[in-house]
Amino acid sequence: MSEPILQVRDLVKHFPVTRGVVFRRTIGHVRAVDGVSLDLHPGETLGVVGESGCGKSTLAQVLMRLTPPTSGTATFEGQDLFAKRGADLTAWRRDMQIVLQDPYTSLNPRKTVGDVVGEPFDIHPEVAPKGDRRRRVQELLEVVGLNPEHIRRYPHQFSGGQRQRIGIARALALRPKVIVCDEPVSALDVSIQAQVLNLLSDLQREFGLAYLFIAHDLGVVRHLCDRVAVMYLGSIVETGTAEEIYTRASHPYTQALLSSVPVPDPSLRGRREAIRLEGDVPSPADPPSGCRFRTRCPKAAPVCAEDPPALEVRDGTDHPAACHFAAPPHLVRAD
């Protein structure tokens, strides 16, 4: 396999919890991201899945250099990502872009679509000469399937799916190598979501993009991603190829997650194995000792409370999982 374009090691992001207005004091830390390592190769899609509060969006923010990490390293094409400053940082931003979740708040309501998609060229004037920008913006709109004549319209004149396309055009403007997609389709209707997913696939093929695809919808991730990392309370609990995760998940959390996803096929009703987790995700400000999943885990044993399991390949499995009792799922269900 090629060298990873993005390499993340032991990334940690803690947010202080403060009290008081005049005299702020820190009373604890939210461990949003707590030791995440991952590799992203050129042209591939790495899915990061997890439920709300698992830290997947914080991971995106840190990797986009929107918020500083607490510790850990990341390299982009071999260069230290967190050491980049000034012109170096600005230049790097051309290579890595982000598509955000909410198509309603991610576009400035007071700017025309032309301004929104053209802003990357204002910030990086070296990419497109001034006279060329209008044409470039119109090309971008066409690439994402919008009418290039609508360059003077405002975001509110577009539907949610079209706005998401505008957001994608903006991310695409600087011809990045990596696009972080932070829940890009979760706010869209089913029929529109499929259009945007297909667009993302097409763009990947056309421009050789690598996607770090963050989502909570396991169906979407299955559809789009080559490899998958499953996050729970700030850590990756299982990682592997899409095939490995979706057919041979070995971490009890991944198994429960997969069995919780409703499948649109009534003939399977009652025939799929249901692993129902009890309760809710614990607060990331006060995570359980040892394995973070143990409080909801059907397999939990005393060792889980003491010894945090490493993310590694264990006997009987073919990909890394952070569970002392990692094992392939029970075989079977339907005929």
């Binding site: 872009q97 955000l100 991610s106 400035n108 700017k111 802003e119 910030i123």
Partner: peptide, 26 residues
């Protein structure tokens, strides 16, 4: 806190640009 400010920062927009182009008009 709006996402468009986040997007502008991700593009490398400086504080002046964010304040005058994105925050002030809103």
């Amino acid at each position: 806190q709006q996402d468009y400010v986040k997007a502008a920062r991700a593009l490398g927009a400086g504080p002046l640009r964010i304040v005058f182009r994105h925050i002030l008009p809103n």
